[in-house]
Amino acid sequence: MIDLVLIGIGTGNPDHLTRAAVAAMNAADLLLLPRKGDAKSDLIDLRRSICARVLTGATRIVEFDLPQRGGETPYLDAVEHWHDAIAACWRAQIERHLPEGGRLALLVWGDPSLYDSSLRIAERLRRDGMAMRVQVEPGITSLQVLTAAHAIPLNTLAAPVLITTGRRLRSGGWPDGIDSVAVMLDAGCAFEALDPHGITIWWGAYLGMPAQALLAGPLVGIAGQIAQTRAQLRERHGWIMDIYLLRRAASDQSNA
C-alpha cells in the first residue's frame, strides 16, 4: 500500500507552509521532486530549499525528470497524454524506491485542488491497480497571495467570482453575469483580447518570491506595460508564473 500525500506549498515561499505541511513532509518515507528542464531550474531549486529548511528526519529525496507536454492538438488530448506519461513516471519511481509500500510525498505549487492535476494523476494509478490512499494537505494559492499583495478583496460585496484560464478568457471573452474574473495559466496576456474600457486589473508574477512583480490599474492604460514587463521577466528568468484579477464596473457589466 502506498500512502500518497499531496502537499500544497504555496508559491514557493517556505514561510507560507502550514505546520501540517511541514509535519507531512517529515513523516514521509520518500519525497519526489520533479525536474522540469533547465528553463525552469528555479522551480526545482525552490523545492530543494524548502526541503533543506523544513526536513529534520530521515525522509529520502529523489529527483526525477518530468515529461514534457506535447504540442499536438486538440489541447485537452495533449494534456491527457501528458498526464498518462507523468503517471508512468510516478509508477516507475514508486516501484524503484518504495517496492514494499510506504508513505510518499509530493510538493504541489499552490494547492492540489486549484488548477493542478496531481489528484487526477494519482487516480490514474489507482485505476490501473496500484493500492494507494491519497491525502491532501492544503496550501496557500497564488490567488490568495495576489489579493494579499495588492491588499484587495477577491470579490465585490455579495458577488461571485469566476476563476478561469487565459485560454478560456481569450476564446470565450468576458463571462456573462460576472464582475470579477481571476485568470490563471495564461500563456500570453489574454486580457489583450478584451475591450479594456471599464476594467481594472491587478497583476502579479513570481508571487511570494524574491522576484515578485506587481502592477495594477485601469486595463485601458496599463495593459501594454504589463505585457512588456511580463516579456522582460520571462526573458530574464527563462520562465514565468503570473496571475491576475480583472474587475468590471457593474454598469459596464450590464452593458456587455
Rank of each mutant, 00 (worst) to 15 (best):
L214E: 03
I163S: 04
R103A: 05
T200P: 01
L207P: 03
I50Y: 06
D3Q: 15
I222Y: 04
W239I: 01
L33Q: 11
S41L: 11
T147L: 07
P210K: 06
G12L: 10
H83D: 11
A159C: 04
V62L: 13
R247W: 05
T165Q: 05
N255K: 14
R248M: 11
T56Y: 08
M241R: 00
D84V: 04
D42W: 08
S41N: 13
V145R: 03
L146I: 07
Q225C: 06
L162S: 09
V183E: 06
V145C: 05
V79C: 15
R103H: 13
Q135D: 11
K40C: 08
N13M: 12
D45I: 07
I152W: 07
G101I: 07
S117Q: 09
A216E: 11
I240W: 05
M132V: 05
R35H: 10
W203L: 13
M132I: 08
C51E: 12
I61F: 14
G57H: 13
E137V: 14
Y206W: 12
T59P: 06
N155H: 06
H16D: 15
D77E: 15
A131F: 00
I163C: 05
A190Q: 01
L43T: 15
T229D: 06
A158D: 14
K36L: 14
L233C: 01
D29P: 02
V161R: 02
A23F: 09
G204C: 13
G166L: 01
L246E: 00
A148Y: 03
A131L: 04
A21K: 09
L219T: 03
K36Q: 12
L31V: 05
E100S: 14
S41D: 15
T59S: 15
L76R: 15
S118F: 09
V108F: 02
E137Q: 12
Y244G: 01
P138S: 10
P153S: 05
P153V: 00
Q253P: 03
L106R: 06
A105I: 07
A223D: 04
G238N: 06
R96N: 08
S113F: 10
N255R: 14
H197S: 15
H197C: 14
N26I: 06
R230T: 01
E72I: 11
S180W: 03
D252Y: 11
T229H: 09
V161C: 07
L169V: 05
A159D: 10
L119W: 00
D3W: 14
A182C: 15
G70Y: 00
L154A: 02
G37C: 10
L76C: 11
D186N: 10
G10C: 13
D15S: 15
L214Y: 05
E63M: 01
M132R: 04
M184S: 08
D84S: 10
D77S: 15
H197L: 13
D77N: 13
Q228E: 09
L215A: 14
I94N: 05
A105L: 07
M132N: 02
T200M: 09
A216R: 09
A159G: 05
L214G: 02
V5M: 09
D186R: 02
A187R: 15
S142D: 03
G172K: 04
L76H: 15
D84W: 12
D111S: 04
W90S: 00
D252G: 09
V5Q: 12
P112Y: 06
I140D: 02
G10A: 12
R53E: 15
S171E: 12
L125I: 00
L114N: 09
W90Q: 01
W90T: 02
E63G: 02
S171I: 03
P138K: 07
Q144V: 06
I240R: 02
